[in-house]
Each structure stands twice: as structure tokens, then as C-alpha cells.
């Protein structure tokens, strides 16, 4: 009970700290600007206007959320260490895992508020442009939230033991690997079936692709824009299982971050 209370206090403080971060407002303004620009794009495009506005705005939500998760996420722990505020905080009766989880939930709350605000803007644009604002679009936003939940955990994990720049690069690496791992595996299997590569190299590459696919979180699962924009139904229990999948990865990443962080010395 006491631990949950401490997590809440640290999360609230992290939320207060993050919403004062200038980078958040820059990304937020960029996101709003791009969402509004989607109206112009819809007019110019040869495709259906509603389709362009919906897919562009969902991409903007995902991208701006990603930028916040990475750039605010990697600095959360590093800032505490560099400014030495961590010394006073960790001298209180709180464990290092509590600190990590509190920091994580604080930033997750920031991302949730960011997505909620963009969702309001998103639906306003759809209403104003008569672009079929359907409730099913919330499904895509829900999955973007869980994708970002995983990305924040990755950023926090790397920032618990490496520098800010390296953490940003590693997190971006995991993001791209997570989005491309499925495609990579399919391409290698396809090339193998078509006999375009030698047996040895195919087997080796396939093994490598399987490992990447298994280790990195499959973030491609959280991109369902084409389904919802075209009004297609998602498989049964898709949301449930992918929520569980994200929670699982978040749990593992935070556990590793806490373990690593607890081994650290604070000078």
C-alpha cells in the first residue's frame, strides 16, 4: 500500500515536471499544426478526403507521441542523476523499482493527456470537414497508446544505464526493429521459398530474423490505421491480447530497468 502511494507521488511529480518541459509544447504544437494541415492535404490529394485526413491525423498522433516518449522518456532518469535530485529522493524509504515505476507512470500520464487532447482536435477536424467521425477510430488511438506505453518503457530501460544520446538511438532502434521485424521475417521466408538465396545463408538469415522477431516487441501490431480507416473489422480479442502483450513487455522492461538501476552507484 505504502509502495503504491510512493509510486503515485513520484508519478504526479514526474507529470508536473514533464508538462513544464518546453519540448512537450513544441511537439504538441507541431502535432496540432500537422493535424490541421491534414485538411489541406485532404483537399489536394487524389484520394478520398476523409481517408487522407484520418490516416494523416493518426500518423501525426503516433509520431508526436513517439517523439514525446523518446525525448522526454530518456531524459527523465538522466536529469534526476545529473541534477543530483536523485540523492535526496532515494534516501527516502522508497525502492529504486518504485522510483522507476513512478517515473514511468508519470510520463505515461503525459502521453495519455497528449493523445486525449489530440483526439479532441482530431474529432473536431472530422466533424468540421464532414469526414465520417466514427467511434471505431478510437480503437486505433487506443492501440497507439499501448504502443507508446512500450516505447516509454524501452526509453526508460536504456536511460537507466546509458547516456541520453545513446538511449535515444537505442530506443529508435527498438522502435524500427519492432515495426519491421514481421516484414523482415516474411521477406526472408519469401526469398527462401523462391530459392533466391543459398541454403546456408537463408537458414542463417531466417534464424536471425526469428530471433529479432521474438526478442523485440512487435510494434507493428499496434498500427491498425488501414483497418479502421477503411472500416474493416479487427480479429476477435485483438485489443485484449495486444493490451496483454504490451503490459507483458512493459513489465519485463521495467523489471530490467529497476534491476539495473538498483545496481547503480550515485556519486
Amino acid at each position: 500500500m505504502q509502495t503504491l502511494k510512493h509510486i503515485g507521488i513520484i508519478a504526479l511529480n514526474t507529470f508536473r515536471e514533464s508538462i513544464r518541459d518546453k519540448i512537450l509544447y513544441n511537439i504538441g504544437l507541431l502535432a496540432v499544426g500537422l493535424a490541421l494541415f491534414s485538411i489541406v492535404l485532404g483537399e489536394w490529394s487524389v484520394f478520398d478526403r476523409a481517408y487522407v485526413i484520418k490516416s494523416t491525423t493518426l500518423s501525426v498522433m503516433s509520431l508526436s507521441g513517439l517523439l514525446i516518449s523518446i525525448f522526454v522518456g530518456i531524459s527523465l532518469v538522466q536529469k534526476e542523476i545529473q541534477r543530483r535530485t536523485v540523492l535526496t529522493l532515494l534516501s527516502k524509504p522508497i525502492s529504486r523499482a518504485t522510483f522507476i515505476v513512478g517515473k514511468y507512470l508519470g510520463l505515461l500520464a503525459v502521453v495519455a493527456v497528449h493523445l486525449a487532447l489530440l483526439t479532441c482536435i482530431y474529432y473536431s477536424i472530422l466533424f468540421l470537414t464532414n469526414s465520417e467521425p466514427t467511434v471505431s477510430l478510437l480503437t486505433a488511438i487506443y492501440l497507439i497508446f499501448w504502443e507508446l506505453a512500450v516505447v516509454i518503457a524501452v526509453a526508460l530501460l536504456f536511460s537507466s544505464f546509458s547516456s541520453t544520446i545513446l538511449s535515444a538511438l537505442f530506443t529508435l532502434g527498438v522502435y524500427f526493429a519492432g515495426h519491421l521485424s514481421n516484414q523482415l521475417l516474411e521477406q526472408i521466408r519469401f526469398a527462401s521459398r523462391m530459392g533466391e538465396m543459398g541454403d546456408t545463408s537463408t537458414a542463417l538469415l531466417e534464424k536471425l530474423a526469428v530471433v529479432i522477431h521474438a526478442v523485440f516487441p512487435g510494434l507493428y501490431r499496434y498500427n491498425v490505421t488501414s483497418y479502421v480507416v477503411h472500416g474493416l473489422a479487427l480479429p476477435d480479442m485483438y485489443l485484449f491480447w495486444n493490451t496483454v502483450y504490451a503490459i507483458g513487455y512493459v513489465g519485463v522492461f521495467l523489471a530490467i530497468a529497476s534491476w539495473w538501476f538498483s545496481r547503480r552507484d550515485f556519486l
Binding site: 511529480n13 508536473r16 515536471e17 513544464r20 541534477r83 543530483r84 535530485t85 540523492l87 535526496t88 534516501s91 527516502k92 524509504p93 522508497i94 525502492s95
Partner: peptide
């Protein structure tokens, strides 16, 4: 962690959340 229930600590040149 329990040991820190009885401790108060002020570091050298304390830094805090300046906001």
C-alpha cells in the same frame, strides 16, 4: 529500504526540483 525509515539525509550542495 527499511533502514531509510529512520534516516534523514541532506546531501552536500543539495539540488532540488527548481520548478
Amino acid at each position: 529500504v527499511k533502514s531509510r525509515r529512520f534516516i534523514g539525509y541532506s546531501p552536500e550542495q543539495p539540488y532540488f526540483y527548481d520548478y
